[in-house]
Design a protein around this nucleic acid. Structure first.
Length: 400
DNA sequence: ATTCCACAGGAAACAGTGGTCC
DNA sequence: GGACCACTGTTTCCTGTGGAAT
């Protein structure tokens, strides 16, 4: 019997690859043509165009579900504009941040500052008041006479952060030009959530949405066309069955027409097919890929939780379908078994809500009349997935 | 009609960490 | 070195809830 490691390496080396260029299937890849987005590209270009005439562009708000090509279009337009602008005479600067990656509003401003070239000394990560961080940012723009386009992806998260911290960062950002002597700052907000404006102050809304562009969801045919183009670049000729392509498009169309999801699916399906040394990617590979993506997502989410959240999830698993009170009792027992100090019931209720948002557990309010009101929780994923995700956590060894 | 249960969930306060600024 | 700041994670306190029981 040959060595299993050698056998796999040898077969991979000898087997012919059906994937030609997998980087094309990565989400950062910007394709040459962005299908079905001509009107949106025109609108975005129009509103940023004033910068070519040395004037301040309008603030712009872009809406659309994930995977509708919003970020792609913005990046393309800005890179084209940057090619045309005379940098020596009219220095333009693009700053891109994703609000989802920042846990605080100050963090977002500091990330912007770094991209403007401010170092740790000029703009420290911590210790400064938000107003001071903002002032240093504006000073930098003013001093260098910069014309900045500040793209904030997933701006709805920023709105949530602001709602939590009661700061007026967003208002200050939209009115930054009033404080700038030289240079300018234009905001491009990208949001997945059409209703996010409801969270904002009327003053901020008027400042932010001088122009708006809405990206519609892709339908099955449009997704199929996008996939066809990417497959042509990424795979060897005739290595993806038409049924596999159609299934990918159909599955992604069900998820509000998410092109990114469609591309992920075909990539993972391709990798599965390649591992099996199949000649072609089939519909079965796509179904396997879909299942694998889901499982990975759940396991990663479970693993990323802190210890007490994990204990709460285990408590829900043990007391499946029970009320908050019963779950709390189960949680306290788990704490005892793992030698942890239990947190308050209020905090555990809060954690249950947080976990519910992620979709791993499902909560339903039940009115029991004389027996009060409670919320009953149950796991939405198999208990096996939870056990698999937690098995490497040493502090949970005794309770799994 | 009123009472009562078993919580849900908002608000405020607090403790602790890790930093800057003067 | 003390005042100040941002932030996280938590506790404490409190009000609200809807239907069964009385």
């Amino acid at each position: 019997m040959s060595d299993p490691v050698d056998r796999i390496i040898d077969s991979a080396k000898d087997g012919k690859s059906i994937l030609k260029d997998r980087s094309v299937l990565h989400f950062t890849h910007i394709p040459n043509t962005i299908f079905h987005r001509d009107a949106e590209q025109e609108k975005v270009t129009q509103s940023l165009l004033p910068i070519l005439k040395h004037a301040k562009p309008s603030n712009l708000l872009i809406y659309g579900k994930p995977g509708t090509g919003k970020t792609l279009v913005v990046k393309k337009v800005i890179s084209k504009i940057q090619e045309r602008v005379d940098q020596s005479e009219f220095p333009t600067k693009l700053i891109y941040t994703n609000a989802k990656n920042e846990s605080t509003t100050t963090g977002l401003l500091i990330s912007a500052g770094r991209q403007l070239g401010l170092d740790e000394k000029e703009l420290p990560m911590t210790g400064l008041a938000t107003g001071e961080v903002f002032k240093r940012l504006l000073d930098c723009i003013d001093k260098n006479n910069l014309n900045v386009i500040f793209v904030i992806d997933e701006i709805d998260y920023l709105a949530q952060l602001i709602a939590r911290s009661h700061k007026d960062t967003m208002y200050q950002l939209t009115r930054a030009n009033e404080r700038l002597g030289r240079g300018s700052l234009a905001l491009v907000g990208i949001s997945n959530d059409l209703k996010f404006k409801e969270m904002l102050d009327a003053r901020v809304i008027s400042g932010l949405s001088e122009e708006e562009v809405v990206f519609a969801n892709y339908d099955v045919d449009q997704l199929a066309k996008i996939l066809d183009e990417r497959i042509g670049e990424a795979f060897m000729p005739d290595s993806v069955e038409p049924q596999a392509l159609s299934l990918c498009a159909a599955m992604a169309a069900k998820m509000h027409g998410d092109a990114r999801r469609a591309i992920d699916l075909i990539r993972v399906a391709g990798e599965i097919a390649e591992r099996e040394q199949a000649d072609k990617v089939t519909a079965r590979h796509v179904r396997d890929a879909s299942q694998k993506i889901e499982e990975n997502k759940e396991e990663t989410a479970l693993k990323s939780y802190p210890l007490h959240e994990k204990l709460v999830i285990l408590a829900v698993m043990r007391a499946g379908g029970s009320s908050t009170g019963e779950i709390y009792t189960s949680y306290k027992n788990l704490c005892k078994a793992t030698a942890q100090d239990p947190l308050s019931q209020r905090r555990v209720t809060q954690m249950l809500n947080e976990v519910e948002v992620s979709g791993l557990i499902d909560g339903r309010i039940v009115h029991q009349g004389m027996h009060g009101r409670t919320k009953k929780y149950k796991l939405t994923i198999p208990t096996e997935t939870v056990k698999r995700a937690f098995k490497d956590d040493l502090s949970l060894e005794d309770v799994i």
